[in-house]
Amino acid sequence: MLFRNELYKICSRKILIAGALLGFLFMAAYVQMSVLGTEFAFDNGTCLRRTDAIQYNREIARRYAGPLTREKAEAVIAEFGWYINDDDLDTGDTAPGYYANSTSRFVTTRLSNSRSQEGVPTAIAGTDDNYAAEMMNGEYVYGYIGGWDNTFSEMHMMILWIVSALVIISCAPVFSEEYAGQAAGILLTTQNGRTKTAAAKILAAFAWAGGIYLLFTLLLAGAFLSIYGSDGLAVSAGLSFPDLITGNLFWNGDPKRTTGAVLLVYLLAGLFSVLVTAAITLYISSVKKSSFSTLLWSAAAYLLPAALYTVFLVEMGPGRIVMLLRMLFNCLPFFLPFHELTSWPFAYRVGSYLISGIILVSACLFGCRKYCRYQVGK
Rank of each mutant, 00 (worst) to 15 (best):
E6H: 11
L16E: 03
L16T: 04
G19H: 02
G19C: 07
G19K: 00
A20M: 12
F24L: 15
A28S: 10
Y30C: 04
V31N: 08
Q32P: 00
F40E: 02
D43A: 11
R49Q: 13
R50D: 15
T51P: 01
A53K: 10
Q55I: 05
N57L: 01
E59T: 08
R62P: 00
R63E: 13
Y64W: 09
Y64H: 10
G66P: 10
P67A: 07
T69L: 08
R70P: 04
E71H: 10
K72T: 12
V76A: 05
A78V: 07
A78L: 11
E79P: 05
G81V: 03
Y83C: 14
Y83R: 13
Y83T: 13
I84F: 08
N85H: 11
D86K: 14
D87C: 02
D88A: 14
T91W: 05
T91A: 12
A95C: 04
G97D: 01
G97R: 01
Y99Q: 13
S102Y: 05
R105M: 12
V107W: 11
V107M: 10
T109I: 12
T109R: 12
R115D: 14
P121F: 05
P121G: 10
A123V: 03
I124N: 08
T127K: 10
A133S: 14
E134Y: 01
M135E: 06
E139S: 14
E139Q: 14
I145K: 00
F152P: 01
E154Y: 15
H156Q: 13
H156C: 11
H156L: 14
I162W: 12
V163G: 07
S164R: 00
L166V: 03
V167N: 00
S170M: 04
S170T: 03
C171I: 05
V174A: 07
F175W: 02
E178V: 02
A183W: 09
A184M: 10
G185R: 06
L187Y: 08
T190M: 15
T190P: 08
Q191F: 08
I202V: 10
I202K: 06
G211R: 05
G211I: 06
Y213I: 01
L219E: 09
G232D: 03
V235R: 04
G238I: 00
G238D: 01
G238R: 01
G238K: 00
P242S: 12
T246N: 13
T246V: 13
G247I: 04
G247V: 06
N248I: 11
N248H: 11
G253H: 14
P255I: 07
T259F: 02
G260Q: 04
G260I: 07
V265G: 15
L267P: 00
L267D: 07
S273Q: 13
S285I: 01
S290Y: 14
S291Y: 01
T294L: 02
S298Y: 03
Y302H: 15
P305G: 15
L308E: 04
E315L: 07
E315A: 06
G317M: 00
G319Q: 03
R320D: 09
V322R: 07
V322L: 07
M327Q: 15
E340W: 15
L341Y: 02
S343E: 14
Y348Q: 05
V350G: 10
V350H: 08
V350E: 09
L354F: 13
L354T: 14
I355N: 05
F366H: 12
C368M: 12
R369E: 08
K370N: 13
C372T: 06
R373E: 11
